[in-house]
Amino acid sequence: MNNKNSILNIAKKTIDLESNAIANLATLLTNDFSESVELIYNSKGRVIITGIGKSAIIASKIVATLNSTGTPSVFMHAADAIHGDLGLILEDDVVICISKSGNTPEIKVLVPLIKSANNKMIAITGNVKSFLGQQADYVLNTFVEQEACPNNLAPTTSTTAQLVMGDALAVCLLELRGFSSRDFAKYHPGGALGKRLYLRVNDLSSVNEKPQVQLNTNIKQVIIEISEKMLGVTAVVENDKIVGIITDGDLRRMLSKNDSFTNLTAKDIMSSNPKRIDENAMAIDAMELMETNGISQLLVENNGKYAGVVHIHDLIKEGII
C-alpha cells in the first residue's frame, strides 16, 4: 500500500511541477511571439521546423498540428539538415528551430547556414542567451526551472513547454485564419474525427431500408415490416408525414398487455410525436439526440416528409460513437 501511495505521490509531483512550469510560460511571452505569428501568417512559404534529440520529436508533433490547422509545415531533423536535407528550405519559408540549451553542436552548425540563405528564423529555446537565442530573428522563451526527472536530466518539463509553445502558435494562427470546423474536416477526412465533422444523417439513412406502415395497418403486417427491414422500428405514416413510431419494445409491451392482437392496428400501439431529425443534419447531432433521449433509432425527414431511419448501429459502424 505504501508503495502505491509513493507512486501516486511521484506522479502528482510530476504533474504539479510541469503544470506550474507551463503556467509560467505566459509570463515569458514578449512581442517576439506576436511578431512570429504575424510573420508566419503573412509568409508566402511554409514553416520548416527543426530540432535535435527530444526537441526533434516535439518539432515533428508541432508540424502535424500546424498542417492539420491550415499552416503548411515540414519537419527537418537538424542532423539530417547539415548532411543534405538543407535543400528542403525554400526562399519564402520561415524556419523554427527548437532547442532547450540552444548550444548543441548541430544547432551551432545549422543556424549560420539558415541565416546565410536569408530565411527568417524563430527560436524556441529555454536559454535566450544561447547561440540560438542570439542568432534568431525572434525568440520564444520556454525556460523551465527544472525537469520533472529527479536528476534534472531527462527532457520532461522542457519538452512539455516546447509543445505548449507550439500549440500556442498553432491556435493563434488558426484564429487569424478563421479556421472553422468545416476547414478542419477538409484536413481530416478519415477516421472518426473527420466523420464527426462532415458526415450527415442522409449519408447513413439512405443506405438503410425505409420501414413504414399506415395507421390502419394490422399488427401482423407491422411485425412483418419491422422484421423484414431489420431496424427494430417502423414509422407510421400518413400522407408521407410521420404520425407515429412502433419499435420492438412497443410490440413486446403489446404482447404483455393483450391476450389477442388480431383486431389491433398500428394506431393502437404506436407512440405519437416520435423524435426525428432532418436528413441534412450532422450525424453527430443524431448521436446526441439519441443519447439525450435514451433511444436507438431516429426517424428521418426531408422537408417535413418521412425519409427513413438512422440507427445507433450506423453511428457505431462509422466510428462516430
Rank of each mutant, 00 (worst) to 15 (best):
D203K: 00
I224C: 14
E288W: 15
Q135G: 03
D80C: 10
H188R: 13
K229T: 12
I226K: 02
N103C: 07
I277Q: 05
T71E: 05
I246H: 13
I40T: 04
T69I: 01
I295V: 09
I295Q: 11
N119W: 10
E301S: 06
A78E: 03
M76C: 12
N216I: 11
V171M: 05
K100I: 13
S6R: 14
T262M: 11
L298C: 04
Q134M: 08
T69W: 01
V144M: 05
S130L: 03
I89F: 03
S180Q: 14
F261Y: 15
F261S: 09
G166I: 04
T30G: 04
A64D: 04
L153S: 08
V243K: 13
G304N: 11
N293G: 04
V310S: 06
L17D: 08
T217A: 10
Q297N: 15
V309N: 01
I122R: 02
K275G: 01
I15H: 05
K229H: 12
L197P: 11
T292C: 03
L163Y: 14
E301Q: 07
N20L: 15
L204Y: 02
S60I: 03
M270H: 10
T292N: 10
E225Y: 00
Q221L: 10
E291T: 14
K115T: 12
G190A: 13
H77L: 06
K317P: 01
Q212T: 04
N118D: 13
G70V: 02
N208L: 09
Y187M: 06
I226S: 05
S271R: 15
R253N: 07
D80M: 04
N20G: 08
M76W: 01
L28Q: 15
T27S: 15
A79Y: 08
A23W: 08
T14I: 09
K13C: 09
C97A: 15
C172D: 00
S158F: 11
Q134T: 14
H188Y: 10
N118M: 12
L176P: 00
Y41S: 07
V37T: 11
V309K: 01
D248P: 01
G191C: 15
S19N: 06
R177L: 13
N258T: 10
A123M: 12
A281I: 01
S227R: 09
I58V: 15
L153I: 13
G87P: 10
Y41R: 09
I284Y: 08
T292V: 08
T159V: 03
D203T: 01
T234Q: 07
I122W: 01
E106C: 02
N239K: 15
N141E: 11
K4M: 13
G102K: 00
N152E: 07
N141W: 08
V37H: 14
I321K: 14
L25P: 04
S260R: 09
A123P: 12
L199V: 09
R252Q: 10
S6W: 13
G84Y: 12
T234L: 03
R200P: 00
N24S: 15
M270E: 14
I320W: 13
S101K: 12
P189V: 00
I52S: 02
I96Q: 05
I52Q: 00
T265R: 14
N67E: 02
E279P: 00
G308S: 01
V109A: 13
N31M: 09
T69V: 06
A170W: 03
G84H: 11
T69S: 06
G133E: 06
N3G: 06
V201F: 07
I219F: 04
L25I: 05
